[in-house]
Nucleic acid binder design. Sequence first.
RNA 1: GGCCUCAUAGUAUAAUGGUUAGUACAACGGGUUUUCAUCCCGUCAAUGUGGGUUCAAUUCCCGCUGAGGUCACCA
Length: 481
Amino acid sequence: MNKVVTRFAPSPTGYIHIGNVRSAIYPYLLARQNDGDFILRIEDTDRERYVDGATELIEDTLQWLGLEWDEGPEVGGDHGPYFQSERLGHYHEYIKKLLAAGRAYSDPTPPEVIEKYRKECSEKKIPFLYRNFRPEKLDFELHEGVPVRFLSEPKEYDWVDAVMGPMHAGPETQDDIILIKKDGFPTYNFAHIIDDTEMGVTHVMRGVEYLSSTPNYLALYDALGIKRPVLVSLPHILAPTGNKKLGKRDGAKSVTEYRNDGVLHEAMLNYLACLGWNDGTEQEIYTMEELIKKFSLEKIQKSGARYDETKLLWMNGQWIRRIFDNNGAEALYNRTAGFWPESADNYSEEYRLRVLSVIYDRLKTLSDLGSMTDYFFKDPEIDTDMLKSNKFLKKMSEAEIEDLLKITISTLSSVENWEPDSLQEALNWLLTETDKKPAELFSLIRIAVSFAPFSPALNLTLDVLGKSVTLARLNAVARSL
RNA sequence: GGCCUCAUAGUAUAAUGGUUAGUACAACGGGUUUUCAUCCCGUCAAUGUGGGUUCAAUUCCCGCUGAGGUCACCA
């Protein structure tokens, strides 16, 4: 068995989004699983759609997800160049062979005429096949500025798609497709076949939208005497609403935008890999290693899968906790740069690590740190309305609240060992002493000290805040009443 | 219009020619000394439709319906 070679072959027309990154993930997993190679090839034959900087965006996305390519831009390889625009010579070699063999012809028919044919067909409601309008005298010479078409010899084709299963197509599916455009660049239809062959690609994985053109590719393989690779059609990822495939028009965010939103690459990869694929077990969380081990083409779903950001976020929370619990607080802390509120700037790593340790289990994304931790770094503004509108506190008079604050202050002042356990003891003592329910007393202290909608367990919050800050904040609130 | 593909709860999926059709997200309810979250427990919720084969069909076959793709000098 030959070495497995897969590839991701995007056009540099912009960023990689959720809807199309799976066609990079699956080939990568398959290559790694079989100890093969994963190639990155940039398909930049459409000069009109080319976007400057898109290649870098693509590379950045793959790197972030951990999809290292063995051959391609930056890393090179034995089958370069890896930009199609630099491979024009290769395509011309093959096109000359086809012309010489009488399987391709130069076609000077102007676009307006072709458009007329097309319109005729659409009016008659019959499929448009250019071969029915083929010029009578065929020109087998290459001319500058004249496109070259395949000379199809339509027939029945049978093949197996690794995801869709056995396939069959009749002659009506094959046509004289354009191989070389008038600008001398190859079309995708032609270029990818030459490149995949020359690069030794064994598994061609791409979206299902190419399924209909596969018979044309099969015809080309035959005409060129090329052995077919394994063909794999990947179903679409659907937009959150409607039934269309997810695209930029639906506001599909770029994959790396999620990085800025505080999504971990592990969670992103995990979610995307499992959208439309599973190993048959009930496992939900997979590491890259597990994915490589368990991935299989047969388990890829045949139908489209809807993108569900809520589940992605859930998975991200799982990964945040998993990294903290399994790899330690510092492992998670090392991922948090850039997500802290400005107020945290002047604080030590050690202090931020303590904040992270008490708050991490309520993070859905790392960017939640910005809004959830501000009061650990900055005295909150006193908001008496918040105290008064609290459902447990609004029954109390101001005097009663003041009394409660006072006894809390004096009790906490006498806590010598300022750590979670003794703080809990002191809080429990206060509960019996004041004869209040936790909901009442703890709400008061929690709000007075944070003025935040929510915060970690009270003893942990006070512990991190420290004795002097805690007392200062309680005093400030008491004075303001 | 031709050709092609797909079809299990709201979503992602599991399973089998015979099960109470499983799991996860979401939603809802409850528990863990306040809040939010985690965690735990529970509730709701699905085999698109009509035939056929069969003792038995969600599973196999056919029609229908619905959804999607494709019919570019875009990929």
